[in-house]
Design a protein around this nucleic acid. Structure first.
Lengths: 335, 335
DNA sequence: GTGAAAGCGCTAACAA
DNA sequence: TTGTTAGCGCTTTCAC
């Protein structure tokens, strides 16, 4: 990489002249500016990012800590973050916590050394189970703002972007009840994380409000053979006529397995679940989905962080929680 | 963040003493070292990464440019890269080219300003279609090594990690032929990228070698309603008894739609496709998959780049191409 | 055993 | 209009 120094030498001017010329300072003569710019172009000069960061004490880089990059929703949020951040000239450093508290702590620690200006993250499963939040508080205390999305730690004071999880399953379940369905089940692979709990609660509330109905749960664990579990579940509960699922895989399998049992979807058994458009295709008939607008969530989180980073005084209060509403996209797995 | 300066002041010693003490230099007295370390610990001192990068002229950061983060395979490779890079103390800056040549160029340009020490990337669809490779060459010429994976540009001299795409579909198709299947189709959503072409060629070669058979292709375009297309395809070609798919969605839909047509899978119609374990679950019966070992590919790419970065002399030749073999994982969609 | 000083690449206040 | 200098945080050579 060419440096100012080298350009200055070649042009027989001082470093600061070159610097000013490239920044269109009006202290510098027009022809000097022209000469400098030409040479800079010739050599494809680019200001050294590291030097700039050191000088200006900001990196224009955001640390993103994601529990699981193979989760379609989380990947999509990452996409949204990246795109929005780029618009404002920010890059993102991605760390994958792999649902581990230790890795989450480590990533936070490692990047809080001047590598990034702030963080966007979704809390790891283990951290949620153990309810550990000190590492977040420490980071914020060090002056690095955090924006949490989806799986948030309520007891940490920071900006948050969340989904109306409770309302979404509540409404979906209500919808089934209104259609006259009597045995509505809830299938979840994520009963131990915050959003999973909220989704379950939404379902449960709707069922209990119906008086005559009782909730039926299938809680899948990591490593389970999902198809087998769902199969057994259907065998045990033969009269299920509706399924609400907390995650996309459960929903897809619920449909495909029902079809395998020769049950008519959506007539005899109707399925709705949290998922995304592309995954809904994996079921035939297509899964009716609760869309979370992942990209929008990512974009919003990026906006909130950048706004905070660029606000004059590093305000450390005035934290906001933005709720991004889900929407129901009707496909062929519901009436 | 605390700096050496602040520690030095508080301890009434010079900055260099503090620096040396923290680095266990034996120039420094034992008790001084102890005093310094204690205070550093108290203040949770961490060396400023940016200053280090500037000083040492390396960032310990890798730029990763991915065409599509929602592609499960690519996301998994990213995971592999991240994990392996971390082992060696590297962070990754992720850019998503979104299959666009322009964005790919931009990302390369933007990060080639000292932000990263080198790149790992998979070529964007548009770049492959237009066969543009100058931006890669320029980057390498600037002294930033590139490692390409999966979708590579053969005419660029650099390290590469690829899959035996041709061989994989060739073998899979041969397998069907040996079983006595007569009408084997090939479904692809990616006929315009390098790996898509190779997979198609592998299939075609096997079919043509069988003398009596003719290839049957279904090429899906972006934005197609995949389920509809596959449905029509099955209607048109009623006697299809085998499907080889180049991507995971096609494989899953091929099975589910066959089941919908009341055809017995795998007996009457057998399906095998490039996919991953988690997506294979989305079909009932489960899709038999050609696994690409995405994580391994990512890890290998990271290793190759880091090795090059850390080799004494910045060798600019001796480029290697590593082939990561696929493996066939038999599930219930084949005999 | 400790400190002063230079330098990585850049910007900006101040001097000429 | 241009140049000099200091300084961002750090390491390292050289002097004391």
């Amino acid at each position: 990489m060419v440096t100012l120094k080298q350009l200055a030498k070649e042009l027989n001017v001082s470093i600061s002249t070159v610097s000013k010329a490239l920044n269109d300072s009006k202290e510098i003569g027009e022809d000097t500016i022209k000469r400098v710019k030409e040479l800079a172009k010739l050599y494809n000069y680019k200001p050294n990012k590291v030097a700039l960061s050191l000088k200006q004490n900001k990196t224009k880089t955001i640390g993103v800590i994601i529990p699981d990059i193979l989760n379609h929703f989380l990947a999509k949020v990452l996409f949204g973050i990246e795109r929005e951040a780029n618009k404002f000239g920010y890059n993102i450093i991605t760390c994958i916590s792999n649902e581990s508290l230790e890795k989450e702590k480590e990533s936070l620690q490692l990047l809080a050394n001047g590598s990034v200006d702030g963080f966007i993250l979704s809390v790891a499963q283990e951290s949620q189970i153990k309810n550990e939040i000190d590492h977040f508080k420490d980071t914020i205390a060090e002056g690095l703002p955090i924006v949490m999305f989806d799986r948030v730690a309520h007891d940490v004071m920071c900006d948050k972007v969340i989904v109306d999880d409770f309302q979404a399953t509540y409404n979906a379940t209500k919808g089934f009840i209104k259609e006259g369905r009597k045995r509505i089940a809830f299938i979840t692979k994520i009963d131990d994380i915050s959003v999973g709990k909220l989704r379950e609660q939404g379902y449960t509330k709707a069922i209990l409000e119906a008086q005559t109905m009782t909730p039926i749960y299938l809680r899948l664990k990591k490593g389970d053979d999902i198809q087998q579990k769902v199969k057994q579940f259907y065998k045990k509960h033969k009269q299920i006529d509706g399924v609400v699922s907390a995650d996309s895989t459960s929903g897809v399998v619920a449909i495909n397995m029902a079809v395998n049992f020769k049950r008519k979807v959506p007539k005899e058994i109707s399925v709705v679940g949290f998922s995304s458009k592309s995954v809904s295709n994996h079921a035939t008939p297509k899964l009716t989905i609760i869309r979370q607008h992942a990209k929008k969530i990512g974009a919003k989180a990026a906006q909130m962080l950048i706004k905070r980073l660029e606000s004059k005084d590093g305000i450390t209060n005035n934290y906001a929680t933005k709720i991004v509403k889900t929407s129901l996209v009707k496909n062929k797995s519901t009436l």
